[in-house]
Simulated assay, not measured.
Amino acid sequence: MQQVKHLLDTKGRGVFAVAPDAPVIEAIRLMAEKNVGALAVMKGSELVGIVSERDYARKVILKDRSSRDTPVADIMTVSVVTVAPDATVDECMRLCTDSRIRHLPVLDGGRVTGMISIGDLVKATIFEQKQTINQLESYIAG
């Protein structure tokens, strides 16, 4: 079973982040520029929240708030679900499903070392299933 650290080895450990006092428009621009759906909200090296496109849609757009005048801290999710590098893909899929979330910051010793998405988890699951199928086909044919 693949672990989060293996996913990060493949996809990279870059974490896109924004400060809690930054205007929401800055967060949305960074998400668009980096083609991601969520950002870590960091105060120095401390993870204080996560902000997603869903937060923006529900807490800014639907409430007719200004993206320029609203700080990220006002819309971010503060009770962040995180995982350790040794968590398995299955554990992460279960967390995402049960918590109804799409992004998981990876913490190693209290430090953010990566971010994985539900897309990363699905991709890893499909890859593993293809490997299993190939092994079974080789066994049957061999």
Rank of each mutant, 00 (worst) to 15 (best):
V4Y: 02
H6N: 02
L7Q: 05
T10A: 09
G12F: 11
G12P: 10
V15Q: 07
V18S: 01
A19H: 03
A19D: 08
A19M: 14
D21R: 14
P23T: 13
I25F: 09
A27L: 00
I28E: 04
R29W: 04
A32Y: 08
K34M: 06
K34T: 07
N35S: 07
N35G: 06
V36D: 04
L39E: 09
L39F: 07
K43F: 00
G44P: 01
G44N: 00
V48S: 01
G49P: 05
R54P: 12
Y56I: 09
L62V: 14
L62A: 15
K63G: 03
K63C: 03
K63R: 15
D64S: 09
R68P: 00
R68S: 15
R68H: 13
R68E: 15
D69E: 14
P71M: 05
V72S: 00
I75S: 01
T77W: 09
V78L: 08
V78T: 11
S79C: 08
T82K: 06
A84L: 05
P85C: 01
D86C: 10
D86V: 04
V89R: 13
C92Q: 13
M93E: 09
M93L: 15
R94M: 07
R94W: 14
R100D: 10
I101N: 05
I101H: 11
R102D: 13
L104H: 04
P105C: 05
V106P: 01
V106C: 08
V106M: 03
V106A: 02
V106F: 03
D108Y: 04
G110Y: 08
R111Q: 11
V112D: 04
V112W: 03
I116E: 00
S117A: 06
I118N: 05
D120S: 03
L121E: 12
V122N: 00
K123C: 02
T125K: 14
T125V: 04
I126P: 09
E128V: 03
Q129C: 04
K130R: 14
K130G: 05
T132N: 10
N134F: 12
Q135S: 12
L136F: 13
S138R: 15
Y139P: 06
A141R: 15
G142P: 04
G142C: 13
